[in-house]
Every structure is written in structure tokens, then in C-alpha cells.
Design a protein around this nucleic acid. Structure first.
Lengths: 192, 192
DNA sequence: GCTTTTGTACTGACCGGTCAGTTCAAAGGA
DNA sequence: TCCTTTGAACTGACCGGTCAGTACAAAAGC
């Protein structure tokens, strides 16, 4: 098997297990078994359990932020916001386990080396949202005194929370439906 | 020392450690040491590491949802929403570690017995937000066809995300300031 | 008053199991 | 030939849980 194929199998296995059990509770033997490779292969490819995990975070966050950035590309600010929200929803729908893992690791307090992860998310994923909002402000489509930082983190957190509740409680519901409710909320179409 | 005092010392110690490291990575020895008691005391009081943790979750979620419910009490629907958001912000500001632990442990996928925790949060904490929104709909202050479930989880997730970013990135910022930005977002006061 | 008993809270050394990480000889495949 | 994988055996540290014992205050018995 090619090296990258093996790596991706290991990523997928590790993501599901760690999302369900947490990093420490997941054993390297479990990861190897689920990926259908030998334990030695894990160490041949990554060197350590921790290295596998950080590589996995880098890889996933990179994919997420790229997806968001591409969704925004070439659109007018407010359309871009809508597209980014939709892309985030879709990404989480497809990579539910990764999203759960992200939410768990990103908001840790002190400790580990993967405070790294928190910064990555903030700078890359939430950063895309912030850029879109900033563009909308510049274009005069949003209030000039909008606190872009807070608003971006609010949008990002709102979407990830709703998406996970959606997958958990009513997965049969169509994405567009959830997306529409979310956009109504954002546009302040609440009043009766 | 009284039994309840010991229990609360253990809660406080466990919350900080688990918020920073996760459940499995936190050892009973660490918890005992930080609480200033012997390891045996943990088992005398709770029976097991897992039991300590679920007791802690029950205790914390109960306090959170009570706080939210009291904030809403006796207010008109939309005022109640504002009050609940403020109360959630304040609670997280005061119990930051607990909030981090909640967000990390509550959105787990499969596995553990603390799928329990996810349900508790949904039913109790998010439930309060949902009730307030439902009251607002009944009073004609919000759209009749608003999806109360999605909206409630969106509001809850938005607030907890923003609150933790606030504590991490700009803790000196006054609560009222963050609260105001959040309410503007909710009211759709975005357009320029 | 005084001893004896009882119950509660806590202690910390210890045990048995688990797991990350290592090593290596052998095999597969491009 | 060289890169990659296999799978099993092993090690040593670490950790959850146990348990015999301490401390001590409040009854109980005399």
C-alpha cells in the first residue's frame, strides 16, 4: 500500500476513535486494528501516538479552512457569508467525528502541546469567517462598528453546535433546511 | 473536615484538571493532591473516578440551568432571552474551567456512559433557552415558524463559544460589552 | 466521671493490569 | 535492491482501585 494511503487510513481510524473516547483513552493497538494495519506501521509512519495526532489535526484543519476559503471565493460579501456557513455545515456533516474531536481539543485550557490546535483553528477556520465579515463591513453591507472578532467566533460556534445537534438528533433532516434556519437567525429575521 | 466540604474541594480540583487535560489523562492522584486529601478519600467519597466525574457533571449542569432559569423568571419573553444570554455569559466567566469541560465532554460521539451528559445539557441548559424562545413565539414577538430547537442550540453554542474566546483572548474586556455585541447579533442589527 | 464502643472521615502503601514505545526477523512489492 | 509493512514478544512506567489501619468525636454503659 502507498504511504499516503496508509496514512489516511490511520487518520480516519484515529479520528473516529478519539472523537468517541478522547486521546488518552484511545490505544495505538485500537487505531492500528481499525485501520487494518499492524501496530509497527503506526510507528513506522508517524513515530509516536502524539505525532500521529498533531499531524491529523493539521491535516483536518487545513482541509476545513480550505473548504471555507473556496466557498467564499469570488462571491459578494454577504453571499460569501452564506456560502461559508453552508460549507461549514456540509463539512461537519461529512466529517462529523472530526468536528467532535475539534470541539473537544480546541477549547482546552492550559496543558498540552496542542494549545497549538486552538491557535490553528482560530487563525485558519475562524479567520476565514472574520475575513468575510470584514469584507462585508468594508463594502458597507454590515455596520461599521461591528466587532468582527466576536462576530466571527459567534458564527463559527453557532454553526458547529447546531451541526452536531443536527447530526445527533435529526440526521435525516436536509442540510438546506438547517442552513436556512441558521441564515434567518444571522440576518435577524426573527421578529414576528 | 465535613463530607460536603471535602466533596467540593474534590469537585474544584477535578474540574480544573479535567478541563485542561481531559478525563482519562487526569489521574486520581493528581485530583487528590490538588484537593489536599489522600487518594483513598476520593474512593471513600465517590467510589470511583467515573462516579466522581458524573457527580460533578450533574452538580455543575444543575447549577447552570438553575442560574439560567432564575434569570428568565418573571420577565417578558425578549427581555428574558437577553437575561438568559447575560446569565450564561456570567456563569461561564465565573466557571470557565467547567465550561471548557462541558464543551469537551458533552459533544462526544459514541462510547461512554456520559452520553448521559449530552442529554442533561440538552434537556436542562439548552431547554431553558428553548422555553424562552417558545414563549416569545407564543407572545407573537418572534416568527411563528421559527425552529425553536435549532435556534436554542444556536444561541447556546454561540454564547459558550464567544464566552470562552473572550476569557482566552481579551479577559479584561467588560462583560457588558460582550453581552451587547452578542445581543446585536441576535437581533439582526448587523446591516449597515 | 471514666472507660468502652461505635461510626465516620480519612490515609497511603501496595497490587495487578494496561499501554506506549521498542525491537526484530521475515515477507511483500515496485 | 530498497522501501514499506507485518506481527509478535518484551519492557517499564504508570494508574485505578483496594485495604488494613489511624484519628477522633460522640454515644453508651458503668
Amino acid at each position: 500500500m502507498s504511504r499516503t494511503a496508509t496514512r489516511e487510513r490511520l487518520f480516519a481510524a484515529a479520528i473516529e476513535l478519539i472523537a468517541a473516547q478522547g486521546f488518552t483513552a484511545t490505544t495505538v493497538d485500537q487505531i492500528a486494528e481499525r485501520a487494518g494495519v499492524a501496530k509497527g506501521t503506526v510507528y513506522y509512519n508517524f513515530g509516536s501516538k502524539a505525532a500521529l495526532f498533531t499531524a491529523l489535526l493539521d491535516y483536518g484543519i487545513e482541509r476545513l479552512s480550505t473548504t471555507l476559503r473556496e466557498a467564499a471565493e469570488g462571491r459578494k460579501p454577504l453571499d460569501a457569508l452564506e456560502a461559508v456557513v453552508g460549507a461549514e455545515l456540509a463539512f461537519i456533516g461529512e466529517h462529523e467525528s472530526f468536528a467532535r474531536l475539534l470541539i473537544a481539543e480546541a477549547w482546552r485550557s492550559g496543558g498540552g502541546d496542542w494549545r497549538h490546535a486552538a491557535r490553528l483553528i482560530r487563525e485558519q477556520a475562524i479567520g476565514v469567517v472574520a475575513e468575510v465579515l470584514r469584507a462585508a463591513v468594508t463594502a458597507g453591507e454590515l455596520r461599521e462598528d461591528l466587532d468582527v472578532g466576536i462576530a466571527a467566533s459567534a458564527v463559527f460556534g453557532m454553526v458547529i453546535t447546531v451541526a452536531l445537534d443536527w447530526r445527533t438528533l435529526q440526521p435525516e433532516r436536509p442540510l438546506d433546511d438547517v442552513h436556512a434556519t441558521l441564515m434567518d437567525l444571522l440576518r435577524g429575521r426573527l421578529a414576528g
